Amino acid sequence: NPPAADEHRLRRIIEWLDHAVELGASGIALGPVFASRTHGYDTTDHLRIDPRLGDDDDFDALVDACHRRGLRVLLDGVFNHVGTDFGRYREALADGPDDWFRKNRNGFATFEGHGELIALNHDNPDVIAYVIEVMD
């Protein structure tokens, strides 16, 4: 069964941070934290924490707890592709392909043939600006 949306799983990491420091770690690396439908790599909203992990307050608490211990936080930014529930992709399906997504002879290009992962077009300045906005 998938975790409940209100589990606040990101906060569970905080109890392990002192151990990470004792081990000599200088930071932690997190897998995708953006909202997604299934496994994290099928992003549906880059501006929202995946509710299966918690919420903005949970993320902020984790980052703050890391920084108080001198730990850096590295996020796995999934910017090559998005999931099929990504809003802009759903609009492109309804309104016709746009240049936010790479195309191939069969329509939208996917990540390594995974039909649920739609490849972003990084030749588009709007996509570049969007990724920069998310990273900021």
Rank of each mutant, 00 (worst) to 15 (best):
V21A: 12
R37V: 11
G83I: 00
D95L: 06
H19P: 01
A119E: 15
E15K: 14
D42S: 02
R90G: 00
L30V: 06
D136V: 00
G96K: 00
R69T: 08
V33R: 10
D126L: 15
A129H: 10
F86M: 01
D123Y: 07
P125M: 11
G27T: 01
D98N: 15
P97G: 02
E91C: 01
H122A: 10
R102D: 13
H114M: 14
R11P: 13
F79K: 01
G31S: 15
P32V: 06
P51M: 08
H46I: 07
R72W: 01
D45L: 01
D85T: 06
T84W: 05
D18L: 08
D99Q: 12
L117H: 11
W100P: 12
P97T: 00
W100K: 14
V131C: 05
T44R: 02
R105I: 07
A5Y: 13
C66P: 01
R48E: 14
A20T: 11
H114I: 14
E112T: 08
A4I: 09
D18S: 14
F108D: 14
G87P: 06
G27M: 01
L30C: 08
H19Q: 13
R48V: 14
E7I: 11
E91S: 05
F111V: 05
P3H: 13
F101V: 01
F34K: 01
I14E: 04
V21E: 06
T84E: 05
D136H: 12
I28R: 02
D56H: 11
N104K: 11
D60K: 15
D64N: 12
G70Q: 06
G87D: 12
F111D: 05
T38S: 15
H19K: 08
E133G: 14
R52P: 11
A119M: 12
I14Y: 08
T110R: 02
F59M: 13
D58Q: 10
D6L: 04
V63T: 06
G107P: 15
S26V: 11
D50F: 10
F79G: 04
E22C: 05
R11W: 00
E15A: 14
C66D: 04
D56N: 05
F34W: 08
D18P: 14
R48A: 15
W100T: 13
H67M: 05
V63Q: 02
T44V: 04
T38G: 06
P32H: 05
I13F: 03
V21L: 10
D126F: 07
H19V: 10
A4F: 10
K103C: 14
A20G: 13
L17Y: 04
I28A: 02
A35F: 03
E91K: 04
N121A: 12
H114E: 15
A25W: 08
T84M: 01
H67T: 07
A4D: 15
V127R: 11
T38M: 00
L62G: 10
D57W: 00
P51K: 09
G115V: 11
L117E: 07
D58G: 06
T43L: 00
R90A: 08
E133F: 03
G70C: 00
H46A: 09
W100G: 09
P3I: 12
R88I: 03
G113P: 14
S36W: 03
G113K: 13
N80A: 06
F108N: 12
V82K: 00
D64I: 03
V127S: 07
H19T: 10
P32T: 04
G96W: 04
D76P: 03
E91N: 00
D58F: 05
D56I: 07
N1Q: 13
D64Y: 00
I128S: 13
